[in-house]
């Protein structure tokens, strides 16, 4: 950036300038492109393969080529019209669950972050350390216990115990506070206290400061936490597979795993279609929020 000004071809073409020879180009940037191409091929080929399989009728995994010769939507109709594999249910279940859990996760995390960032109270430090410690015991390590607890909950509240998406969502919220509170608190700490204080002078209550000032200002970090939560929920397999049972109540991860497991040759086409449909919203969301995520990742590392 601070290198001495070199006139670039684009800005000010100077006729006398020698064209780079191929060897020179190779030495300066060419090898970079070569490596990048190989890496991109490694990254993208499996994805292209699935996209292609999704639009090929009866692809065996092998005979699919990267560009389907006669693209069809066969696999999609096969996928969506199979009553044994209620893909639409899985899809709706997963997306609704992910969004709702993310919403509550953000609120729970932000609430805790607000308390730890803006108030000084007894047990504050201990509380913060405690959250960090609890986070080291991942929830799914206690899977057996969670399963047995939910079995007992089923006997009392039949709708939110085993085989219930609400129950699954509640379990996920158990892990909402820990690391998220830390991540969000790091951001809250950068918002000057003076803003709160001037609002307080104007008669704002702590609730109004939280909802009206802090939360809107912290939108970027809330977006990151929300997105990470969405991705977590969509990917979560262990707890969901232990708690959910009925076919129409499964999430995509559990449903698709059962759908494709052991029947790769048979179900490959519809599976590819299903995978494509499931991946699209997440990839779009990711691209949309990528800047925030990268920032959040590195920030989390520095703060954490």
């Amino acid at each position: 950036m601070t290198s001495p000004a070199v006139p670039t071809v684009r800005v000010a073409p100077i006729p006398k300038q020698r064209r780079q020879t191929f060897a020179q180009w190779l030495k300066s940037n060419g090898w970079r492109h070569a490596i990048a191409w190989v890496a991109v091929a490694f990254a993208v080929t499996p994805i292209l393969w699935v996209v292609s399989a999704a639009f090929t009728t009866n692809p065996t995994i092998s005979n699919g080529s990267l560009i389907p010769s006669q693209p069809t939507l066969d696999n999609f109709t096969r996928l969506l019209n199979n009553p044994d594999q209620p893909y639409v249910n899985w899809y709706v279940n997963t997306m609704l669950l992910a969004v709702i859990v993310a919403l509550f996760t953000v609120l729970i995390g932000a609430g805790a972050a607000y308390a730890f960032s803006r108030f000084r109270f007894k047990g504050r430090k201990v509380g913060l350390m405690f959250l960090l410690l609890v986070q080291m015991f991942p929830q799914f390590l206690a899977l057996v216990a969670i399963y047995l607890i939910m079995a007992q909950v089923s006997d009392v509240f039949s709708g939110i115990g085993l085989d219930s998406l609400i129950g699954l969502g509640l379990v996920y919220l158990g892990g909402a506070m820990g690391i998220n509170a830390w991540l969000i608190k790091g951001f809250f700490d950068t918002i000057p206290m003076e803003i709160d204080e001037s609002a307080k002078v104007d008669g704002a209550s702590h609730g109004q400061i939280f909802w009206g000032i802090i939360l809107p200002l912290a939108a970027p970090v809330l977006a990151v936490v929300g997105l990470l939560s969405v991705i977590f929920t969509i990917n979560e397999f262990v707890i969901a597979s232990a708690l959910l049972q009925s076919p129409q109540k499964l999430t995509l991860a559990v449903g698709l795993q059962q759908f494709i497991g052991e029947k790769y040759s048979e179900n490959w086409g519809p599976f590819a279609a299903g995978a494509l449909l499931a991946a699209i919203p997440v990839v779009l969301l990711f691209i949309f929020l990528q800047k925030f995520i990268v920032g959040g990742l590195t920030q989390g590392s520095v703060k954490g």
């Binding site: 729970i108 609890v134 015991f137 929830q139 206690a142 216990a145 969670i146 607890i149 509640l170 379990v171 919220l173 158990g174 892990g175 909402a176 506070m177 820990g178």
Partner: peptide, 8 residues
């Protein structure tokens, strides 16, 4: 939530 679904 933390208590019921993580600590317990």
């Amino acid at each position: 939530f933390l208590t019921i679904f993580q600590l317990i």
